[in-house]
């Protein structure tokens, strides 16, 4: 099994939905179809490269690109990229030091992550170096490992999704948008 397949299996086991998007338009169509209500779209490299804001607006989606503090609590969906991913656990890794990225990935019920499959690493041990690069620079940093949706089993051990964070985690695989593990 190649890394993408391994990643997909593990992420789906953790409750994420993994979608292979053949091209930009397919990704935008998926977002437009699955995102309900307003969409938080923070500034990130792949998002700009794909010109997501324009694409979503063309599809009549209400897109929020600023004033996140005020608007994020009522938004339904958030779209971010990912720095890289871990195949063995189905984890996406997002440097979310920028507040809009943090808000878009923590508050809404739906979180969409765009990931270039070339950024999938085998496991966490393969990520030691890049995690070090993210955490060793002089400025503050907030790196998130995200594996599946928000979950709890605190009432009678019954697995329940979406207690505080996103209830849905959609991982959109799109080839050819980034190979750089230090950008999302």
């Amino acid at each position: 099994m190649d890394l993408t397949d391994r990643f997909t299996t593990a992420a789906e086991r953790a409750g994420a939905r993994v979608v292979r998007c053949p091209r930009r338009s397919a990704l935008l169509d998926y977002l437009a179809a699955e995102a309900a209500g307003s969409i938080l779209l923070p500034n990130f490299a792949v998002g700009s490269r794909l010109n997501l804001a324009a694409g979503l607006r063309q599809r009549n989606c209400p897109v929020i690109t600023e004033d996140f503090r005020r608007l994020a609590p009522r938004a339904d969906s958030g779209v971010t990229g990912a720095n890289f991913a871990l195949a063995d656990t189905g984890t996406v890794v997002l440097d979310s030091t920028d507040e809009p990225l943090r808000l878009a990935s923590t508050l809404p019920l739906r979180h969409f992550v765009i990931l270039d499959p070339r950024k999938i690493l085998a496991d966490s041990m393969a990520a030691v170096g890049v995690l070090g690069q993210l955490q060793k620079h002089p400025d503050p940093g907030f790196t998130a490992f995200i594996t599946g949706p928000s979950r709890t089993a605190d009432i009678e051990r019954v697995l329940t999704i979406g207690v505080h964070g996103p209830a849905q985690l959609h991982i959109l695989l799109l080839q050819g948008v980034s190979e750089d593990l230090l950008e999302s």
């Binding site: 953790a14 063995d88 507040e99 400025d139 907030f142 995200i146 594996t147």
Partner: peptide, 13 residues
């Protein structure tokens, strides 16, 4: 195999 979230926090973001 992994919890939903591991947050690596360094300094005040």
């Amino acid at each position: 195999v992994m919890t939903s979230y591991v947050s690596w926090i360094r300094g005040p973001v």
